[in-house]
Amino acid sequence: MQLISKFSRSGLMLLLILLIMLPFLISSSYLTHIVTLILLWSFVATAWAYMARFGMVSLGHGVFLGIGAYFPTLMFNYWGVTPWIGIFVGLVVAIVIAAILGYTCFRFGLLGDYFALVTLAVAEVSALVIMALREITGGSLGYTLRSTGRLADMQFADKRVFYFMALILLIGAMYIWRRIDKSPVRLALTAIEESEIAAASLGVSVIRYKMMITLLSAALTALGGSLYAQYVTYVSPDTIAGVGVSLSVCFKAILGGMFAVLGPFVGSAIIVSLEEYVRISLGTSFLGLSQIIFGVSLLLMIIFMPRGIMGSMSMAVAKRLNRISARH
């Protein structure tokens, strides 16, 4: 086991160094753009997996993405409030909504697929609210961020700033993941997943721990939504709120493996690259094709590799190591 962790730690370092140097090594701004998107979605998917890996599979994270994306954007366009503050407002709103939602769900003991369904409905509500308020939000046509190019408005001449912001956020999210792993929260929540009653009888405040993770996950997701909106300077219910994006975040994490810290990153890297590759090589008229490939590979994944790529890999490695140690 120690061998694995040592191995993966050095692998992680290498990856990190590579990611830091990447924008300076490659001159193509297009490639930097793709990697920025990968980092952004990895960050969101990692935050999503905070909850999912303890059995709280949310299909409604689009709500938090949407809040994070729309609040600073609208506040900036209408009132000229700098996104530096707007993001903070979005964050607070997301936390409040998550608190209300999470508390009612956990209070009523909503688990598993019931929890998933309710969160899915909430995601749909978020998209519908954006549509209903189309006078303000632009409805399904979306909404473009006013451009000023000023640093105070979080707009940078060099888009690589976003790259590094996303990278820092991702590293932070992974660091928090590790901290959760080492904290008693993890033990308690694993116990929750195994048996709610057992955990309760251990004196663990089930709801409190669940709430902590939920609020953290929602806050980081909203932050990811904000950064995404500032980066692409365009928001719409299809791309950053509602059911579609909720599912796509969850699929990225599942594909990579939602029980491994690197899983969401691996999943996001594969899916974003795949989407881009198909889009470029087949042209926009076949936009749907990449999604079909994506959907089919997800299906295969869920059927044949339910623990995701990283999960299956670490299981294979563990098996091999077991065999080696058994031989000695």
Partner: peptide
């Protein structure tokens, strides 16, 4: 549930 959700993506596209 997730498998059927991915079916949505396949069918719609």
């Amino acid at each position: 549930l997730l498998a059927l959700a991915s079916l949505i993506i396949v069918v719609e596209n």
